[in-house]
């Protein structure tokens, strides 16, 4: 529960009394409660620092790295004050096997600069999870050892889980196929 290094956006709310739920920070990220789960909102720049702090605090297990494309999400998204919505969101779930605690880190990633730091140095298991996100969403992970597709064929064009990628009737594109119907 480190309260040092508050996020830059929260600099003005530091003046607020500490019991205000909005001003809660942990590992330099805004803390929010979502149906009983702890959610940390951080920025692309602070993502690696937040993850490192969590890793140092005993979150030895990287449960999941995934992304969400909010392109067609009608209505307003519920985000804490100070977090600007972007099209993509990286969601990283961590688990602490000692205290049995879990946190979720959410990062807003803009579409024109879809890249975040890789967590490979902290958890080598992030390698395959980040490749999946790259494969299906086209979000790059900086300093990842092997940023290649993992589920789709290597020569596939497009990133299927983006919301502007049609769900129906795509001709199957494999390199050996001579005539694509």
């Amino acid at each position: 529960m480190s309260d040092e290094a508050p996020a830059a956006e929260e600099a003005e709310s530091e003046a607020d009394p500490p019991e205000s739920a909005e001003a809660d920070t942990r590992y330099g990220a805004l803390v929010e409660d979502s149906l009983g789960d702890t959610v940390l909102h951080t920025s692309v720049e602070a993502y690696l620092d937040t993850a490192s702090a969590a890793h140092a605090d005993g979150f030895a297990l990287l449960v999941d790295v995934t992304a969400v494309d909010f392109l067609t999400y009608a209505g307003t998204r519920r985000l804490p004050h100070g977090v600007d919505p972007e099209r993509f969101e990286i969601v990283t779930s961590l688990f602490n096997p000692q205290s049995r605690e879990r946190v979720r880190i959410r990062v807003q990633v803009p579409v024109d600069e879809a890249a975040v730091a890789s967590l490979f140095d902290l958890w080598p298991g992030s390698e395959i999870l980040e490749r999946e996100v790259f494969d299906l969403f086209g979000i790059e992970f900086i300093d990842h050892p092997d940023m290649s597709r993992v589920l789709m064929p290597e020569d596939w064009v497009g990133h299927p889980l983006r919301k502007d990628y049609s769900v129906s009737s795509i001709p199957v594109q494999f390199k050996s196929a001579s005539n694509v119907r």
Partner: peptide
């Protein structure tokens, strides 16, 4: 990991499967 926007269909479903991490 289910994200809903209050609709009949889920907005996003992420399936965290055990084998994917186990094979890594």
């Amino acid at each position: 990991y289910v994200i809903s926007k209050g609709d009949l269909v889920p907005y996003r479903v992420k399936i965290r499967s055990a084998s994917f991490s186990n094979i890594s």
